[in-house]
Each structure stands twice: as structure tokens, then as C-alpha cells.
Design a protein around this nucleic acid. Structure first.
Lengths: 260, 260
DNA sequence: CGCTGAGTTGATGACAATCAACTCGGGTGG
DNA sequence: CCACCCGAGTTGATTGTCATCAACTCAGCG
């Protein structure tokens, strides 16, 4: 599966959401920026984009023009091997920042692909440098967000390295369940026990390092144990506590922490 | 293997190295800070510490008093599972920053343990907050360093998820080889083809997600193929290019990139 | 109505874990 | 000084988890 480009990014038709009324602002990079400075932040925002399912935002190994704040939808970040295998690094959800890396000008270290229709706020990469130098507290905020993503990445590393198939899958599902629940009203269609879940079994496999066949069998086990159900692009978690325990998952790691 | 505390951190006897003469300053958090401001940075530095092999700097799940810049020696960062397994997240080398995470006041997300005698520069965690707000470019620098560590973490995730035992081990070894080589004269005892390597097979296993037995067999294969040798706490890489190719390793990911 | 992509199931095999025994070198204490 | 001890490394035999290959179901859709 080469995971090729499927088109380029298209600007969303006007009107664009303004920073001041942005639903995810307090989750995202501009958290803590005073309201009277939001005209400044808006100046750095090239415009809003809409991506269609399977569309790539940027490609591993190629230079990219933009970094993004995700407004709505799901995006996967992944790395590929030349034998066709891929590893999903992160499921990006609304509020997440995509595309920050040490060398802002260099080729991307990974690819980003929309899983659903996704709305994004685009920042020209060549302006990020001056954005960070003009308002240096953005650097601290970026460091904090990055540290959060790092914590997630480290949890998955622990999982793929040291947990069984069942534990890994359980961890991924309960993690995504909690992350979506944490977004609250921003994701309207979630209920106490279920969330919209536009993730195929193949993607679960690519995230936890298993084949689709084995993911399928493992999901069947979890289903038969009454822990969860996946049907119609919807994940229902019947026993969140039992699932969390099986997965060695602690919801505290997802909490939003102060720093800015 | 419970990996328990093995003592608490001891202050290094005077005199302490001053920031201005710090050998790793340009690799570390204070890169780019003008020389005439280094008295300021020094004010945040509690003091220097010396850790002995196997000693812990902080423990997963417990609060810690300090974050550190590593001066000299090797430190491993790892997470544990209650069944006794552990996953090494990163081998920290001189210049690396240890202990930054989203909630500076909360319990540590992972443990840090010295592999060799290690010299560290300690920052009280409760002062980090004000350090970042007083000189906000430190935030940007921290974000950049974190992004670098993130890239490493993602490479390892790709490895444990999608590569064979041989590829993973090859990757880890060539990565550490290049990182040490990149430190140049700071690590005097390295030569063109060999570096000091205080890493036991058990630690290699904990890093790449394999048992010591399997690490041993795989190292034997690599040795018999003439790619490398490990003996007397020293790693010799006979065929760096072949090893890098086997590992799908690109040295460019370790390059130091500008941002500050 | 047949096509397609995702999901499901079975049979088989490979890779790595596990269990167990043994070597070897460095350090310690008798 | 030597014997013993211990931790790290090495090797063999066996088991188990997950990959691979292949076939088939099923729902959605042109």
C-alpha cells in the first residue's frame, strides 16, 4: 500500500472562522494568548483548509508549505518503510498541532493523512520562525504541546515494545475514547459510552504494530468479553474501567496541564 | 526486576563548572543565549550533581525536585509495566535535557537512571516555570529539543512496530554510534570506527522490545556478518554504511537544526 | 447486479519468548 | 592467593504469539 498523494489541499470557501471565535483555541497553540492580541495571531494564519478523507496534508521526505492546527476531523500521522509497511505515530484530533519539527524548512519526518473530512488552520512554515520570535511565549506553549505528544508517543512505544496484542489494542481504543470524551461539546455526536470512530481495522493495526487479521481476532475477543463494540464507524465502550485496567491505561496522562 | 532507587542524588564537590565554560552549552538548552546573559542562566542552576551507575535521578510516578542537563555520561529514560517489563524510551547523552513534561509539578511520566557515572546540571522544577517566562526564547529552544527527541521516539516506534529484530538492533546501534560521533571531542575516547558503549544486552533488549536471549543471538548474527563488534564495553562498527542500510537509518535525522 | 473494500475465518509457518543449562571474567572474602 | 560467587553473556530445546496466505461474507454503491 503506497499511500500516495490523493490531491492537494484546497482552501475552504469563505467565510473563515476568526481566531476569536475559534472553538478549539483554548486547546491549541494559541491557548493563553490574550483576546486583544488575536488579530495578531490571525495575521499568521494563511487561511483555512478543508481536506477530504484519505487526502494527504504533507508527505514524509518532502518539503511542506504549511503546518496546521486541526479544527475538526481526524488526521493520522505516520511513517513508512520501503517494504510498504507503515506505522501510525499519532491520531490527531481537534486542537492538535501538526507539522512542527526541529528543522522547519527541511523535509517532513512523517506523512499526515486525513481520515475524515477535516478542517484545518494553515500556517506558512516559513513564517513560523518569526511567529515564535515575535511572541516567544508561543515557544513555551509549543514545547508544552510537544511534551504532551511526546508522552503519548512514549506510551505507544511502551505498548508496541512490551505489551500483548490485546493490551495494545485496548490501550489505543481507551485512549482515543478518553481523548474524544475530553473534547466535550466540540465533538457533538459522542455519548457517555460511545464515540464516532472513523478508524478501520487496518489503521488500528498500523498504529499498534499488528496485521489486520490479528487485529480482527483480537477485537473479536474484546467484543466477546463484553468490553466494547465497534460497529458503523462507532466505538462503544461498555466497561471503560475494565478496559483501562486491561490496557494499563491511566487517564491522567491525557489531562491538560498548565504552563502558559 | 523492580529497578528500585539506589540512592539519592549527591551534589558534586566544588568547584562547579560555570555556564560560560560549559562544554555542552551549544548543544543544550542554553544554546543561543548570549554570553553576557550566562550569569542569568547560572542563577537558575541549583548546582551540579554526580550520579553513580544504576542510580536513579527520578522515578516514574513520583514527583521530582529537579530537571537536568546532562554534562557527561549516559542516562536511560524508561517506563515500566507492573509485570516487571520495562521499555527504554531514550538513551540520554551529553547535552540532553531530562525531565521536561507538560505538567512540571506533577509526577514523572518515566524514570531516569544513570548507566555510567554521570555529571548533571540540576534545575529546580519549580523555577522552570519562571525561567521560561523570563526568557521566553528558552521555550522555543525547549520546543526544538523536544521535537528532536520526539523524532527519535517516533523512529523507535516505527522500529518496534514494524521492523525485524535485526533491523531494530542495527538501528539502535548505528543511531547511538552516530550520536556519540556527533559529540566529537566532548567524548574523547571514540575513534573513527568505535565508541565507548556502556550498554548491556539487557538494556538493548529493553530499548528495542526483545529479550536478552534474542538480542544475544541477533548480535551474534551481526557479528558473524562482519558488521560490528561489541566487546569490553566498546562498540566497533566495521561497516557503518551497510549497517545503516540494514537499519533503514538516515543520519540526517540526528543533525542539529537551527531555530534559535 | 456485479463490483469493491472492509471485515471475518481457517490453515500453516516464522520469528521471537520462554525455560534451562552452562561459560566466562571480575571481584570479594576467607 | 585462591576459591567462590555473581552478573553478564552464550547456547540449545521447546512453546507460543502473531504473520502470512487464502478463501469467503457482507454491506454499500455505481
Amino acid at each position: 500500500m503506497p499511500h500516495r498523494p490523493t490531491g492537494s489541499i484546497r482552501a475552504k470557501p469563505e467565510p473563515h472562522t476568526r481566531c476569536i471565535e475559534c472553538p478549539v483555541r483554548e486547546l491549541a497553540l494559541f491557548k493563553g494568548i490574550p483576546e486583544d492580541r488575536l488579530d495578531w495571531t490571525q495575521g499568521f494564519r494563511q487561511s483555512q483548509y478543508e481536506a477530504t478523507p484519505k487526502q494527504h496534508l504533507y508527505h514524509e521526505g518532502q518539503k511542506a508549505d504549511f503546518a496546521f492546527t486541526l479544527f475538526a476531523g481526524w488526521v493520522v500521522l505516520y511513517k513508512s518503510l520501503d517494504n510498504g509497511k507503515r506505522q501510525i505515530l499519532r491520531f490527531a484530533l481537534p486542537g492538535d498541532f501538526l507539522g512542527f519539527q526541529p528543522n522547519l524548512e527541511g523535509p517532513m519526518s512523517h506523512s499526515a493523512q486525513a481520515l475524515t473530512t477535516a478542517t484545518l488552520c494553515a500556517f506558512p512554515r516559513n513564517k513560523l520562525q518569526s511567529m515564535f520570535s515575535e511572541r516567544a511565549e508561543l515557544g513555551t506553549r509549543m514545547a508544552q504541546m510537544n511534551a504532551q505528544y511526546m508522552a503519548l508517543c512514549q506510551h505507544h512505544l511502551l505498548g508496541t515494545g512490551r505489551k500483548s496484542a490485546k493490551e495494545r489494542i485496548a490501550f489505543l481504543l481507551i485512549e482515543l475514547f478518553h481523548r474524544i470524551q475530553g473534547l466535550g461539546e466540540i465533538i457533538p455526536s459522542s455519548t457517555e459510552h460511545s464515540i464516532e470512530f472513523p478508524v478501520a481495522q487496518e489503521e488500528i493495526g498500523d498504529a499498534v504494530g499488528l496485521t489486520t487479521v490479528h487485529v480482527n481476532r483480537t477485537l473479536k475477543e474484546l467484543r466477546e468479553e463484553g468490553l466494547l463494540d465497534i460497529a458503523n464507524r462507532r466505538l462503544t465502550v461498555h466497561e471503560p474501567d475494565a478496559l483501562a485496567e486491561l490496557a494499563h491505561f491511566d487517564p491522567a496522562v491525557l489531562a491538560h496541564h498548565p504552563l502558559i
